[in-house]
Deep mutational scan, measured.
Amino acid sequence: PQEEYKKRAKKALKKGDEDTAREALKRAGLSPDQAEEFIRRFL
């Protein structure tokens, strides 16, 4: 589910792994723009 992928993305970002985070967010159904926004907000 979407929440699970978002959790995964946050874990990846904590490790500084933005590529894995983007992949997880893409799987969560976010557009690339939404994924970038999510990452920017998190960092």
Rank of each mutant, 00 (worst) to 15 (best):
E4I: 11
P32V: 11
L25K: 00
R27L: 15
E37G: 05
G16T: 02
R40F: 09
P1I: 14
Y5M: 09
E4P: 06
G16E: 03
R40W: 09
L13K: 01
P32L: 11
I39H: 00
L43E: 07
L30S: 01
Y5L: 12
R8I: 15
K15H: 13
A21I: 03
A9E: 01
T20F: 07
K10Q: 13
Q2E: 13
K11L: 14
L43R: 13
A28M: 06
R41H: 13
A35F: 04
P1M: 15
A12P: 02
R41I: 11
K10D: 05
A21V: 03
T20A: 14
R8V: 14
R40N: 08
E36M: 06
L25D: 00
I39S: 01
A24R: 03
K10M: 15
A12H: 05
A35D: 01
A28G: 07
T20P: 01
G16H: 05
L13M: 04
D33C: 06
K15W: 08
G16M: 04
I39Q: 00
K14H: 10
D33M: 12
P32I: 11
L25W: 00
K10N: 07
P1W: 15
K14P: 01
K15A: 14
D19I: 12
E37T: 06
P1F: 14
E3K: 10
K6E: 12
I39A: 01
K26N: 08
R22P: 00
P1G: 13
D33T: 10
A12S: 05
D17A: 05
A21R: 00
L43M: 09
P32N: 11
T20S: 11
R41D: 12
D19G: 10
F42V: 08
Y5D: 06
L30G: 00
L43N: 10
E37S: 07
A35C: 07
E23T: 07
D19K: 14
K15I: 13
A21P: 00
S31Q: 07
F42S: 04
K6V: 15
D19P: 11
P1E: 14
K15Y: 10
E23F: 04
A9N: 01
I39D: 00
D33V: 11
E23A: 11
P1Y: 14
K11Y: 10
K6Y: 15
G16K: 05
L13N: 01
P32W: 09
K10Y: 14
K15R: 14
A24E: 15
A12K: 02
E37P: 00
K15M: 14
E23D: 10
E4G: 08
A28Q: 02
P1L: 15
K10L: 15
R27K: 14
A35Y: 03
I39K: 01
D33Y: 09
G29W: 02
T20Y: 07
A24F: 15
A28K: 01
A21Q: 00
K11N: 13
E3F: 08
T20I: 07
R8A: 15
S31W: 04
F38W: 09
A21G: 03
K6R: 10
P32C: 05
K7I: 12
D17G: 03
A24D: 10
D19F: 11
F42E: 07
K11S: 13
R22W: 05
F38R: 01
K14I: 13
R22C: 02
K14T: 10
K7H: 08
E36P: 00
S31Y: 04
R22E: 01
R40M: 08
I39M: 05
I39L: 04
K26F: 11
K11W: 10
P32H: 10
I39V: 06
R41T: 12
K7Q: 12
R41N: 13
P1K: 14
S31L: 07
F42Q: 05
I39W: 01
G29E: 03
G29Y: 02
G29C: 04
E4Y: 15
R8Y: 12
F42D: 02
A9H: 02
E36C: 14
E37Q: 08
D17P: 00
E37H: 07
P1N: 14
A12Q: 03
K6D: 04
K6N: 04
D19H: 13
G16Q: 04
Q34M: 07
A21N: 00
E18S: 10
K14R: 14
I39G: 00
K11P: 00
R27D: 10
L43H: 11
A24K: 04
E18W: 15
A21S: 02
L13Q: 01
R8Q: 15
L25I: 02
L30V: 04
E37L: 07
D19R: 13
D33A: 13
F38M: 04
K6W: 14
R40A: 10
G16P: 01
K6I: 15
L43P: 05
P32F: 10
F42L: 06
A24W: 15
K15N: 14
D33Q: 13
D17M: 06
Q2S: 13
E37M: 07
L25M: 03
K6H: 07
L13Y: 02
A12N: 03
R40I: 08
S31V: 03
G16S: 03
A28C: 04
P1C: 05
A21W: 02
K7W: 10
E18P: 11
Y5T: 03
Y5P: 04
F38D: 01
K11I: 14
Q34K: 06
G29L: 04
K7F: 07
Q2W: 12
A24S: 07
A24L: 15
D19N: 12
P32K: 09
Q34W: 04
E3V: 08
F38S: 01
G29A: 03
E23M: 07
A35E: 06
Q2N: 10
K14C: 12
I39F: 03
A28L: 06
K11Q: 14
A21L: 02
K7M: 11
F42R: 03
T20H: 06
L43S: 09
A35P: 00
L30W: 06
R41K: 12
A9Q: 01
R22S: 02
G16A: 04
A35I: 15
R8D: 12
R27P: 01
R8F: 13
E18V: 15
Q34I: 05
G16Y: 04
R27C: 09
L30H: 03
